[in-house]
Design a protein around this nucleic acid. Sequence first.
DNA 1: ATGGTCGGTTGCCGA
Length: 266
Amino acid sequence: MIKVINWNINSIKSRLNHLLLLIKEEDPDIIMLQELKCETDKFPYVEFETLGYNLLINGQKTYNGVAILSKYPCEDTTSSLPSYNIDDNDQQARYIETICTINKKIWRFISVYVPNGQEVESEKYSYKLNFLERLHQHLNNLKTDQENLVIGGDFNIANQDIDVYDPKTLTEKLCFSLKEKKHLRKIINSGFSDTYRLLNQNITQFSWWDYRAGAYQKNNGLRIDYIFSNHTATNQLKESFVLEKFRTLEKPSDHIPIVSIYEENT
DNA sequence: ATGGTCGGTTGCCGA
């Protein structure tokens, strides 16, 4: 069994105890994190090495930052998404990819923090769409039919009406505009499954609620965090669920962890 | 109700 968790933690420093609680309660094999808001060499390595994790960190000061924590040894780690001449000077820490060998099978894991985009048609919105295009190209170039590929991330896009609290109000708003959805669907349709949706059809479950305006109390949320897996991995998918409890703790992240469990075919 | 609340950093940005 391989238990994978994805979580936008919104500051590793502020949420250290929540992450330790998550590990204590769920004992995941792989944890993919976003928004560390911490420089690579300031990550609290010891706490997690003590718990048996290999740590792959791509951090930066104040903003962004992604990580993969793995109980299995990792190799060939890359901390940048190729630019493909689309965005040649991208310095933001939004991507990390690594390969684990688990029971002699190759599992490639990616943790990605897609740009928020600030406002539809803004400069940052273009950067968001460009980033998604780069991600799409990179995933196509991996040609990973022979291996298992699992992508966890905060994509900052809700895919369908069922994934938002009020599709009418949110039409063409940031994180629900047609251009964003088309970019997201292009990635999914290139050979991935949305693991939570695959096993929980017709259920409205959000992964993020704004800190502002009592959004959580009103359940005004969006499902923008995902675990995607390729066909090979999805064939082994057994369970997928969210841990909404982590939005009810004191000083929570505005996002909740998502869990997907794979059972290796024998 | 076109507002509000966080985190990291220091008077404001990003989400």
